[in-house]
Amino acid sequence: MMPEAALKELAARLLEEGLVDLFIGYGPGSLPLRSTPVFLRQAAGAGGLILGPTCENNLAPYLARFPGERVGLVVKACDARALVELIRENQVNRENLYVVGVPCRGVICRQKLEGRLAGRELTAGRIEGDAVRCGGHEWEEAIPLDQLVHPSCAHCRLPAPELFDVCLGDGEDPVAASGEALEARDARDAGARYREFSREMEKCLLCYACRQACPACYCPECFVDRSQPAWMGGSGDLSDCMLFHLVRALHVAGRCVDCGACARACPQRVDLRVLNRRLEQEARELFGFTPGLDPGHKTLPGSFRPDDPDDFVK
């Protein structure tokens, strides 16, 4: 059975048999090539669930809103990694979760799509095999999916969910992430990297969509929302934006699973991977730790070994 059909059946059964109180998945969005999170409490809605490259949101951040409820959750591989971290950090109770792992070939990067459409308005879109069929006023174009996948997906080295109760599409639809090679450590000098960072930060409006979309950003009160003392101004000038993103980066270091949900949520197309991929890389290269794997391990920020490398401490 195709994963999407299997998902509809499974969600209906879970809700019908009362195995979950709530099922969180994706439904068709109101714009072409968009999906939208759906919250089902009755089996009747399960037929509307969808899967595929439009399912760009990470649904894990929603779990915090339903403490004590048994929740069924659709996870792509990166979402599952986020879930591993949330469980490791005692933020969600594994027992209350029914995790439905789904195959993923990468989600569409709307920014890449916009660039490709060069100002033409997309009014219809559908996925057909490996092609994204796009259409608008008096034009049509088929774009290969792998040219549109989000950079986080293109670099996803772990495209099979790590954690699940059921994994749909078991093997029949092998996960075919393009698995771009591990990035080499950025060799550019600090000045060049700072300029890139500044260029991205200049676009930021401090709307906090990135933070809100991020599974690792679950603090009930973010440091930016403190007014006594105010750790940061809210004016959205460059230094505020830099401060917010640097502190956020430090807070998600060793926990960020590079799901890219933050970058996709950004209305200003800020390339947040400028920081995130670096975090992931440092955790891996310095501490041999890949966030989102190995549920038995302690949290990275919460573990200390006397022989931890420290030559970056200057």
Binding site: L205, A209, Q212, A213, A230
Partner: peptide, 24 residues
């Protein structure tokens, strides 16, 4: 239910006009 609680919608709304006054 699905709202994340960010300010994307209000910041981009041409009629939303709420502001904060602060000292730097």
């Amino acid at each position: 239910e699905k709202c994340l609680g960010c300010a994307a919608c209000t910041f981009f709304c041409p009629t939303c006009h709420c502001f904060d006054v602060m000292d730097a």
